[in-house]
Measured scan of single mutants.
Amino acid sequence: KSAVKALFDYKAQREDELTFTKSAIIQNVEKQDGGWWRGDYGGKKQLWFPSNYVEEMI
């Protein structure tokens, strides 16, 4: 599983989504079709976030 870095702040709209700030590192990313991926951040595990808010880390 990979890690991504947030390009923008994102505030969860639902309880199954992540809230994060710009430059946050989201771990254990599971990529899905449809523009939403799952990952771990801030003590939350495998919640959804919009993939267009992040960049992949190499």
Rank of each mutant, 00 (worst) to 15 (best):
K5Q: 09
W37S: 06
R14I: 06
T21A: 12
F8V: 11
G42F: 05
N52D: 14
E15H: 11
K5S: 05
F8A: 12
A6H: 03
N28D: 05
Q27A: 11
G34C: 11
K5H: 06
S23G: 15
E56H: 07
K22F: 05
Q46L: 05
G34D: 08
R14K: 15
Q46G: 14
Y53H: 10
K5Y: 07
D16G: 10
L7I: 14
A12E: 06
F8N: 11
E17H: 07
K31L: 06
Y53K: 07
Y10T: 06
Y53D: 02
L47V: 05
M57N: 08
K1A: 12
E56G: 07
Q46N: 12
Q46R: 09
D16Q: 08
R38V: 08
V54G: 04
D16R: 03
Y53C: 15
W37E: 03
L47R: 09
Y53E: 02
E56K: 06
M57A: 09
K11G: 09
Y10D: 06
T19F: 04
L47I: 03
I58V: 14
N52T: 13
V54A: 06
Q46F: 06
W37K: 01
F20D: 02
R14W: 10
S23K: 09
G42D: 13
K1L: 13
K22V: 11
E15P: 13
Y53W: 07
G42I: 04
G35T: 08
Y53A: 11
A6K: 01
F20A: 01
I26N: 01
E55Y: 08
V4I: 04
A24C: 12
F8E: 11
V54S: 03
A12W: 02
L7F: 05
A3Y: 13
K45S: 12
G43H: 08
L47C: 15
L18F: 04
E56S: 09
G39V: 02
K11F: 15
E17P: 00
F49Y: 02
G39N: 00
K22D: 04
I25V: 12
K11T: 15
I58Y: 14
I25Y: 06
I25F: 07
T19P: 04
F49G: 01
Q46V: 02
I58D: 14
W36K: 05
F20Y: 01
T21G: 11
T19H: 04
P50Q: 03
T21K: 13
V29E: 01
G35I: 08
D40E: 01
Q46Y: 08
A24R: 01
G35V: 07
A6E: 04
T21D: 11
P50F: 01
V4W: 09
A6M: 02
K22A: 13
W37Y: 05
D33G: 10
P50D: 05
F8Q: 13
A24M: 06
W37C: 05
D16L: 06
A24L: 02
E55R: 07
A6W: 00
E55D: 08
L47K: 11
E30F: 11
K45T: 14
Y10N: 04
R38D: 03
I58P: 14
K31M: 11
A6Q: 01
I58H: 13
G39C: 04
S2G: 13
Q32F: 15
K44G: 12
Q13G: 08
D9T: 04
S51H: 07
E30D: 14
Q32R: 14
E17D: 03
Q27D: 11
A24S: 13
G43N: 10
N28G: 06
Y10K: 04
P50H: 03
R38G: 04
E30Y: 12
N52F: 10
Q32T: 13
N52I: 11
K1G: 13
G35E: 10
L47H: 14
I26A: 01
V4G: 06
N52M: 12
G42E: 11
S51C: 14
F20H: 02
Q46W: 04
K45D: 07
S23I: 03
V4R: 01
A24D: 08
K45C: 13
L7G: 06
T21S: 13
S51L: 06
K11H: 14
A3K: 13
E15W: 12
S2P: 14
D16M: 07
Q46A: 11
M57V: 14
E17F: 02
M57R: 06
K1I: 12
G42V: 04
F8Y: 14
K31S: 05
V54R: 00
R38W: 02
W48T: 04
S2F: 14
L7A: 07
L7M: 11
L7W: 05
Q27R: 15
M57D: 10
K11L: 15
N28I: 04
G34W: 03
G42N: 13
P50L: 03
A24Q: 06
Q46C: 09
K22S: 09
V4S: 05
L7T: 07
S23F: 14
G43W: 04
Y41L: 10
K31E: 05
K1P: 12
G35Y: 11
L18C: 05
I25D: 03
V54T: 07
F8M: 14
M57T: 11
L47Y: 12
A24I: 05
E55F: 07
E30H: 14
W36Q: 05
N52A: 14
K22C: 09
K11A: 14
W48A: 05
K11R: 09
K5D: 04
S2V: 15
E15D: 13
R14C: 15
W37V: 05
G42Q: 11
G43M: 07
K45V: 15
G35N: 09
E55L: 08
K31N: 02
L47F: 11
Q27C: 15
A3P: 09
K44A: 13
D33R: 08
Q13L: 10
K5M: 09
K5R: 14
S51Y: 06
S23D: 15
E56F: 07
E56C: 12
I26L: 06
T21L: 12
K45P: 02
V54H: 01
A12V: 02
K31T: 07
E56P: 10
G43F: 06
R38K: 12
K11D: 15
S2H: 13
S23N: 15
F8G: 08
S23E: 14
K45N: 10
W48S: 05
D9Q: 03
V29M: 01
A3C: 15
P50W: 04
K1S: 13
W37L: 04
S51I: 07
S2A: 13
M57Q: 09
L47Q: 09
K22I: 09
Q32N: 12
V54D: 01
V54E: 02
R14E: 10
G42Y: 05
L47P: 01
I58R: 12
D40W: 00
V4F: 11
V29W: 02
A6L: 03
W48K: 10
N52W: 13
K11Q: 15
F20Q: 02
G39D: 03
K44C: 11
Q13Y: 06
W36N: 03
A24G: 09
A24P: 02
V29S: 02
F49L: 03
G43L: 07
D33V: 11
K45M: 13
E30A: 12
K11C: 15
E56V: 12
V4C: 15
G42L: 09
D33L: 11
Q46E: 07
F20L: 05
A6N: 04
R38N: 05
F8I: 10
S23L: 10
V29Y: 02
T19E: 10
L7Q: 08
A24E: 06
F20T: 02
R38L: 11
A12K: 03
F49N: 00
Q27K: 13
R38H: 03
D40L: 00
N52E: 13
L7D: 06
I26M: 03
K5A: 05
K45Y: 14
G34H: 07
I26Y: 00
Q13T: 12
E56T: 09
D40A: 00
D33H: 11
D40K: 00
L18P: 03
I26V: 05
Q32V: 15
D40R: 00
D40I: 00
G43P: 08
R14N: 14
Y41W: 08
N28T: 00
T21M: 13
S23Y: 13
K22R: 11
V54Q: 02
E56A: 09
D40C: 03
G34A: 06
L18I: 04
W48F: 09
E17W: 00
N28W: 02
F20I: 05
E17I: 00
K1F: 10
G35P: 11
I25N: 03
L47M: 13
